[in-house]
């Protein structure tokens, strides 16, 4: 069983080692996409449940779900790339809040074009900061959890520095373009899908994408096969920074402003880890993609809504989220244990 996912056809040319007997196309598909399909099924069940609770299910209701998930979905992508590369980033939430504050500082009193320029600038800045974090992790040899933990303090402080109080007044055109009108779910859906298609898909298929998967699945093997470990690691964080920046801009668009609340960042980080785990990305790295985490983010948004619909205290959703995360990791661990043990 190969652990490196052969996403690029022909990349194994020249291998002289004996390959394991080929598995059938279906079993490969099931192994690779099984988890995502499972999450999609869970999402479908939750969606049907939610629809059955509402007297009317139209564009407004869909928009509430999709625009409400956009930020978490993008943040889950950020965490996802980094976890796939075998790391973890406890600062994605603070990075998002920083991006949110920076765009809320620059965007007010600007037209649509100005806002879009600001959005690009903000994403570039978060990407640069994330690169720096990745570089510090690689250069210092301090475990990634610790570096990103310290970075989360720094970023929360920087958010407070650029914006010392909540601020609104972002151009309505920009809000409509990113989050959509109250009865128009398309912009939010297209942005999530767009980021997946335009940023993630090419990345995954590229040399760098393959290197990220290789690094995550076995660092030593990747090193011995000539993968530039340090660079790949730093660039995975850069990609995470791009996605976190997108999440920050999306947050600005969906709330019409920004606020430097550190607890927003902490909660968002925890949610992103939850979405990544539920989305089928193995914490050990190298396994999974970003579609799963996006679907999982939708599930995580639907759960409190459904509880509210049931007349339960929506705070129970916290409990439910915790239980789901734990169960998913426990079950995934047991499955992996069974898979690696010869029967």
């Amino acid at each position: 069983m190969t652990t490196v996912e052969p996403t690029v056809p022909g990349s194994y040319d020249g291998f002289a080692t004996s390959l394991p007997t080929p598995t059938s196309r279906w079993s490969r598909l099931a192994r690779r996409q099984g988890w995502t399909a499972g999450v999609a099924a869970l999402l479908a069940v939750l969606l049907v449940w939610r629809v059955s609770q509402l007297p009317k299910f139209g564009a407004f209701e869909i928009r509430t779900i999709t625009a409400g998930t956009m930020t978490l979905a993008l943040l889950a992508m950020a965490q996802g790339v980094i976890v796939i590369s075998g790391g973890i980033d406890l600062s994605v939430g603070s990075m998002m809040v920083f991006g949110n504050c920076l765009s809320a500082l620059w965007m007010p009193d600007r037209g649509l074009a100005g806002c879009l320029l600001v959005a690009v600038a903000v994403i570039a800045i978060t990407a640069a900061l994330a690169t720096l974090i990745g570089a510090i992790i690689t250069a210092s040899g301090v475990p990634d959890i610790i570096v990103t933990l310290a970075a989360s303090f720094v970023l929360a402080g920087m958010a407070l520095w650029v914006l010392d109080a909540p601020r609104s007044g972002v151009s309505a055109d920009f809000q409509r373009l990113v989050a959509g009108r109250l009865d128009n779910p398309w912009p939010s859906v297209l942005w999530i899908g767009g980021v997946l298609l335009v940023l993630w898909l090419p990345l995954r298929r590229s040399r760098l994408g393959l290197a990220i998967y290789a690094l995550g699945s076995d660092r030593k093997a990747a090193f011995l096969s000539g993968v530039q470990i340090a660079w790949t690691r730093v660039l995975a964080y850069t990609a995470g920074g791009v996605f976190s920046g997108c999440a920050g801009v999306a947050l600005t668009a969906s709330t019409g402003g920004g606020g430097p609340l550190a607890s927003t960042g902490t909660t968002a980080t925890l949610n992103s880890v939850a979405a990544v785990v539920l989305g089928g990305v193995a914490l050990t790295g190298g396994i999974g993609g970003l579609v799963g985490p996006v679907l999982a983010a939708l599930c995580l948004t639907l759960i409190p809504a459904i509880m509210l619909g049931l007349g339960w205290d929506p705070s129970n959703a916290e409990t439910a989220r915790g239980v789901i995360i734990i169960l998913v990791v426990a079950v995934a661990g047991l499955l992996q244990l069974r898979r690696t043990r010869p029967s």
Binding site: T319, G322, I325, I326
Partner: peptide
């Protein structure tokens, strides 16, 4: 038990546990 017997990653286990406890306490308050 989760970390030792079911081999759940400790980081995830305790993040999940914090989430569960937050829910339990918030609901319990009412």
């Amino acid at each position: 038990l989760a970390v030792g017997v079911f081999k759940v990653n400790p980081l995830i286990m305790t993040i999940g546990m914090a989430s569960v406890l937050l829910g339990v306490v918030t609901v319990g308050l009412r």
